[in-house]
């Protein structure tokens, strides 16, 4: 007998992770809301979830990297540059956060630097990230709307369910907005 193993839908995994990252980012941007200890650990956890986000979107990264100077949609090229800036900014936020850490580093017996430069840089890169995240969300808005309709709205309104694609295959490069 043929055994069918049900793999979780990749897009659903992506959507769930992205919603988690977005909400965590909003909380991390308000340290007074969470308290400093939670802020620091949440920031470190964001580093891990952003890495997972990149792994889930690896094929897009590879394809656009290969075709950056060739045949690729201008919007994919713009997204690529923006995503690179966002990656650099997020890395700087987490790195400078660790440099001024009062909870995470001491847990490992390490002492932070507490320099004014790192505090200023942490604040500056965090402020910049709000704009970069806004642009990142804007450039992927159509995907967010489509997936929200498919995985959140449709199951809640069974009468008007949008038809699910028969195959759960990886989207083509054209569908991913890489190729023209």
């Amino acid at each position: 007998m043929k055994q069918t193993t049900k793999r979780p839908n990749r897009n659903l995994t992506k959507l769930a992770l992205d919603i988690g990252i977005f909400l965590s980012f909003l909380v991390a941007m308000a340290p007074r809301f969470s308290g400093m200890t939670i802020h620091e650990w949440l920031g470190v956890a964001l580093g891990a979830t952003i890495t997972t986000h990149l792994l889930l979107n690896w094929s897009w990264i590879v394809q656009v990297t290969k075709r950056f100077f060739g045949k690729v949609q201008w919007s994919a090229r713009l997204s690529y540059v923006l995503n690179a800036l966002l990656f650099i900014d997020m890395t700087v936020i987490i790195f400078t956060g660790l440099m001024i850490s009062k909870a995470v580093l001491p847990t490992f017996g390490l002492e932070a630097m507490h320099g004014g430069v790192w505090k200023a840089l942490h604040s500056l890169s965090a402020n910049l990230s709000v704009f970069l995240v806004g642009l990142h969300v804007a450039l992927h808005w159509q995907w967010i709307v489509n997936m929200t309709k498919r995985f959140i709205i449709a199951p809640l309104t069974p009468g008007q369910a949008t038809p699910q694609p028969a195959r759960v295959a990886r989207p083509t490069l054209k569908e991913e907005g890489v190729l023209q």
Binding site: P31, R32, G35, M36, G116, K119, A120, L121, H122, S123, L124
Partner: peptide, 9 residues
Amino acid sequence: TTGGMHGGH
């Protein structure tokens, strides 16, 4: 050139 933190805790 960057100012200090204006928030934090």
